[in-house]
């Protein structure tokens, strides 16, 4: 279900990433498809364990055993990255595709000064840049993510920063080479709103000015509402609804999307009980037959015992449900 069909930067087709554990096989990502156009920001949302991070790791080839990408394609500018030799993948990761992790220490090297790491990142991409220029660019990049006294900070080690500052350094490094694609995995979850605003500003600016495409992974629907062009909602390793951001948020048709939107405090008037989805997400090792959401779904019936496929009941919208809410008048929670 692509949103901008003209030669997307990234097209993920029927991605399947499974973890082969002693307790059983977990289909962490099970047939996920989406595409992200040039300059487009896609929000990838879902609750914990729904497969958001594993989707991100699969795209950049960082799934470690017992996990494995067992099926599907990851087309980056038309080229399939699944099965690409490690060396080529590493090249791409440092340069054209960047990931910002929830834990900044996945990006930062604890034993190297920040300036060393930043200059290395720039030179790996373009060895013709002078050290002087690389340092100047590094300093600018730190300043742009709101780090005060960047000259001084360049000479610091990662442990000399607070958690929030460390995340901003990691983000500055990810943005350094103006990559074509950024996968940001809940990078602002631990940050305060004013700092989050600063980072959203930088991310948005990069996408608008250089045509960088971005996948913003989060459980926070309100952040995605303000930032993204399109949205993919995941549940139990599968995409259950996808489409343009306004379409999905204004007229969600999948019962899970509707439940999720309904339970956000801002969607309910003050002091009233929130709409709540009963129960909790099932374990991937113990999924019911058919639709993974059925135990919590007010619309579930026998038809849901057969795994629903993604359909396009409305133009531009992908939905994985036997009984989508296609009547616009229906109340959330009905």
């Amino acid at each position: 279900m692509s949103v901008k069909d003209t030669s997307p930067t990234l097209e993920v087709r029927n991605l399947q990433t499974h973890f082969f554990t002693k307790a059983g096989d977990a289909k962490a990502v099970d047939g996920v498809s989406f595409s992200v156009g040039k300059g487009e920001i896609m929000g990838l949302v879902g609750e914990s364990g729904s497969g958001k991070s594993v989707t991100g790791f699969s795209i950049i080839g960082l799934v470690d055993p017992p996990g494995n990408v067992v099926g599907g394609e990851v087309l980056y500018n038309g080229k399939n990255l699944v099965g690409l030799p490690d060396e080529q993948m590493r090249q791409l990761r440092g340069n054209r595709i960047a990931m910002i992790f929830q834990d900044p220490m996945m990006t930062l090297n604890p034993v190297l000064r920040v300036d060393t790491q930043m200059v290395e990142t720039i030179l790996a991409h373009d060895p013709s840049v002078s050290k002087q220029d690389a340092l100047a660019r590094s300093r600018d990049a730190l300043g742009r993510v709101g780090i005060p006294a960047p000259d001084e900070r360049l000479r610091s080690y990662p442990h000399q920063f607070s958690g929030g500052m460390r995340q901003r350094v990691a983000i500055a490094i990810a943005l350094l080479n103006k990559p074509d694609l950024i996968i940001a995995d809940e990078p602002t979850t631990a940050l305060d709103v004013t700092i989050q605003g600063q980072i959203l500003y930088e991310a948005q600016k990069l996408c608008r000015e250089t045509g960088t495409s971005m996948i913003w992974i989060t459980h926070d629907l309100a952040v995605v509402a303000g930032l993204a062009d399109s949205i993919c909602v995941m549940y139990g390793g599968r995409v259950v609804e996808q489409g343009l951001i306004n379409d999905v948020l204004d007229h969600p048709v999948h019962p899970y999307t509707r439940g999720l939107l309904g339970s956000v405090p801002g969607a309910n008037s003050r002091g009233t009980r929130l709409y709540q989805i009963p129960g909790m997400a099932p374990s991937l090792l113990n999924l019911p037959q058919g639709c993974a959401f059925q135990a919590r779904c007010p619309r579930a019936d026998e038809a849901c015992l057969v795994e629903p496929q993604i359909t396009e009941p409305i133009a531009g919208r992908g939905v994985r449900c036997c009984h989508p809410h296609l009547n616009a008048e229906e109340e959330i929670g009905a």
Binding site: G146, P148, D192, V193, T194, I195, Q196, G197, Q198, L200, Y201, Q204, D220, L221, A222, V223, A225, G226, L227, I245, N246, L249, L261, V264, G266, A267
Partner: peptide, 20 residues
């Protein structure tokens, strides 16, 4: 001003002045 809200779409984020 900075609080993300569901109704607030397609925001133009602004750089925040200063540092805590």
């Amino acid at each position: 001003n900075e609080v993300p809200q569901l109704e607030h779409r397609g925001r133009d984020y602004k750089p925040v002045e200063g540092e805590i």
